[in-house]
Design a protein around this nucleic acid. Sequence first.
DNA 1: GATGAATGAGCATTCATTCAT
DNA 2: TATGAATGAATGCTCATTCAT
Lengths: 196, 196, 196, 196
Amino acid sequence: MPKVTSMYKAEIKEKIIQAAIESFAQTGYDRTKMEDIARRLDLSKGTIYLYFKSKEDLFLAICEYNIQQGDKEDAGLFIKKENVVTDAEQIYDNIRRREQGNDKVMLEMVAESTRNPKLRKAMYEFHVKVHEHVMEGVRSKIEDGFLKKDADAASLAIALVALYDGLAVNRMLGVSDAANKKAWVAMLKAMIAGAS
Amino acid sequence: MPKVTSMYKAEIKEKIIQAAIESFAQTGYDRTKMEDIARRLDLSKGTIYLYFKSKEDLFLAICEYNIQQGDKEDAGLFIKKENVVTDAEQIYDNIRRREQGNDKVMLEMVAESTRNPKLRKAMYEFHVKVHEHVMEGVRSKIEDGFLKKDADAASLAIALVALYDGLAVNRMLGVSDAANKKAWVAMLKAMIAGAS
Amino acid sequence: MPKVTSMYKAEIKEKIIQAAIESFAQTGYDRTKMEDIARRLDLSKGTIYLYFKSKEDLFLAICEYNIQQGDKEDAGLFIKKENVVTDAEQIYDNIRRREQGNDKVMLEMVAESTRNPKLRKAMYEFHVKVHEHVMEGVRSKIEDGFLKKDADAASLAIALVALYDGLAVNRMLGVSDAANKKAWVAMLKAMIAGAS
Amino acid sequence: MPKVTSMYKAEIKEKIIQAAIESFAQTGYDRTKMEDIARRLDLSKGTIYLYFKSKEDLFLAICEYNIQQGDKEDAGLFIKKENVVTDAEQIYDNIRRREQGNDKVMLEMVAESTRNPKLRKAMYEFHVKVHEHVMEGVRSKIEDGFLKKDADAASLAIALVALYDGLAVNRMLGVSDAANKKAWVAMLKAMIAGAS
DNA sequence: GATGAATGAGCATTCATTCAT
DNA sequence: TATGAATGAATGCTCATTCAT
């Protein structure tokens, strides 16, 4: 019994991607059944195959989607206020909000990327972009005098991104977000203080 | 010879665990077949079941094993030299050496821990231990005057561990270890400079 | 305009049958998708169901169609010239032309007929008709003195049809048509010579 | 619950092949479920996959098996007695006995061979062998004076094989074996008479 | 009438687990 | 103890069929 909604294909595709993100995040890629994803949307298994040619294809679409979402984000998000020290907390919240719920899928993506070269390449490129973006922020802070002129912007950017990622892992293990945020703030303050 | 037998059993168990770590790291938990693990040891599938009652049981044993290995590590490893700044690089290498090859399994463990409360608890406790250990290091640096008296040792410890974990993720994505190490050193130097 | 409409319907039905014959011949009944047939005609899958209630129904329609086509053929086709010996080659070509492209579908029909009693009955009846027709030809040759008065017209007719069918199988296996034709001619000549 | 019979792998393989021949003959390749074959042998689906890596692989094994069985047959089977005319019936029975029950699978094989070049090649080569064997028989008859010195042995051989194949098709359609045999005998007698 | 999106039964294949040897 | 043949539940994917538009 076809439903024949007038919804655009692209919209349905996105809905499926959303549902799949939830499922993959909850159960992991391998343990998620196509039917699980379908049921979340009150669709039948077969319908998903009208939009994605395989489970892997769907996963890759999610990866692309997540990466593109990252691209779309406001480039000023990371470090935009004048006073990094007082805004460290705000920055953390900003990043968190934008990643909302994607941590676990990201984890799946990282795990999968160790086996799928194409995905690894895409994720690597994404990371490079994020690094560049963060590095820009760090550079502007250098120019603003918050950090020393000779600070290694590239390395600090990598470290900041890694720090955030590591805190995301913490969260998954049950570390309270308050503790994470405090760690983030403490480190950022120390960094600013030390590199200025 | 019950002792010998039991030692023998324990040895085989550990061998299986080692082989499983390699397999899980390479292929991921779900995609690793019991047969793959068996073949690495020139054992038969059935034999593994003499030592572990299920695939999940084996995975949990690996988790326990990894966590215990962490415990056994020299508590002075993290920050033992007087001069943290000049030894930052050395510290990074030390940690790396001790984690050698376990990054990917750790990733699997984290992913699995989001579904398995028992595992999550174990990993959380492990992280707490690591945090405490690192915190001790940070505290001793505070006492030695390398860091300010009012530095938040707990938070900085969390941040340092998170930083390291994030760099491990970077590695999996193909970020060069040189870049990672530079990021680590840059951050540590900034931190030391800023918090002192 | 009911007549026009009905003629139109009949035309479409025949077009679908033609397309289905091609598809079934190429891919086999089971592996042919309704969509394949539809696409050959720039129709949608659903449209075929307006003319045939199921895939099986369509296949059965093809069978009927093929059987009826056989019926419509000029009854004089098989052996019409006076001199069977010199015309053997011509006869082979005549049959081939009339069966053009239907060999493979016929094969599918035979295979299917072993499971579908209704189809088997229809095909059996068709064969009986063909046999009768060929037998008529053989009889006329007996009357004309080309074959002995006591020749077993029925059996020779069955054999001739079987011979042709067997050569059709050869063709499918890649035996050259030249070789097949030579075999046909050699056998016919021998038969005529021997039975006269 | 493993059965762990001591039966040799090769024997089991052959049993599976036999069961598959029956199933494929009865239901056709596409409609035969792996489970059907397994159930015939009181095996589980999975077991078949221990011996054949896929359904197609099993089918191909059957093809090979059938072709090899043909090779093994007594080369003198076809025409061995002095008097072809009186023994025509016997010859037909001989061939039938040796093909016992394989007609339908052969049909499946021919159908499949139109899509599978590897199979087509194998079947073509098999036919060539059969042709050669029959041709030898025809030649010996020529030497024995049963057929004219200038008879086209190759073509007659092809025709004889085709005749037999065509009668096999008849059988599948429900033509009585008696009628088929009569046709065979009538044609052979006519041929011998005509070509001598 | 025509369409093609949606459905879901159906099936090939995999692999953790068992247990007779 | 060790083995590996056997099992069968589980699941990705296909495709004939339906029906809202």
